[in-house]
Amino acid sequence: MTKIDEVERHLFFEGIYLKYGYDFRQYAEASLDRRLAGLLGDYQASSLLDLLKRALREPEEFRKILGSLTINTSEFFRDPTFFKVLRESVFPVLKTYSKVTIWSAGCSTGEEVLSLAIALKEEGLDRRATIHATDINPFVLKSAKTGIFEASCIPTFNKNYAAAGGTGTPSQYYGAEYGLVRFNPDLLENVVFSEHNLATDAAFLEAHLILCRNVFIYFSRELQERALELFARSLVHKGFLALGSKETLRFSSLAPNFQAVSPGENVFSLLSRSEPKP
């Protein structure tokens, strides 16, 4: 692996931030450096400064670079037991509200949003729930909005659907054609897709449930802290926060504000809202 020069990394991300507004300056370095080394290889560049020059001059190239810097690993009902916990421990509380607002932060190509929409539908919550699905990358949002996926996702979908507590037949939610599958458009009827950057943007809603799974592992502790403060400000009292199965609040100063809902799965409820900093 090519070693990344610290000064070059700093200049690279400052440049990207100034030109395009994407802020990678506080991402976790070790995995980010691997992605940067991969980019240098792809572009046969010896320095990040050469890469920066191209990114600044050619927005089309920047789009590709952005795609390589963000992780878009996603699958339907990822960690199926998590969705079981949602249905058993979180949805019963959501049912006590007449309107439910859900924020899927870092929604990537939309697999989690569709999984969530299906679970909400089966629990009779679909009409009162609005899902705000956000991501830093506008190109994955564009793809998520279509509800169209490669047909190769279907075996995982079918398998995880059952393990996640699905009560119907998985094939009722999609139709297949030409190697692609299209999910029923009504699943995305109450989904609002928008760009949102956890590193720079402010709170924009009051949510009953926030899902932010497998995002914090790419953040430094400082950035994770910022995002947690943002979530604490964006949740109603006793609102729920769901993190990835290997993400923890243990090393955060905001940990006392949250209470674990279910041991094993990383679902928390907000005990006290943090006061906005002056």
Binding site: S31, R35, T73, I217
Partner: peptide
């Protein structure tokens, strides 16, 4: 290392996980 995640160490001598390919 947990299954299905890359395990990395940071310069701060703390762990990092990733779902990179």
């Amino acid at each position: 290392a947990p299954a299905d995640y890359h395990l990395l160490v940071e310069k701060t001598f703390r762990f990092g996980l990733s779902s990179d390919r």
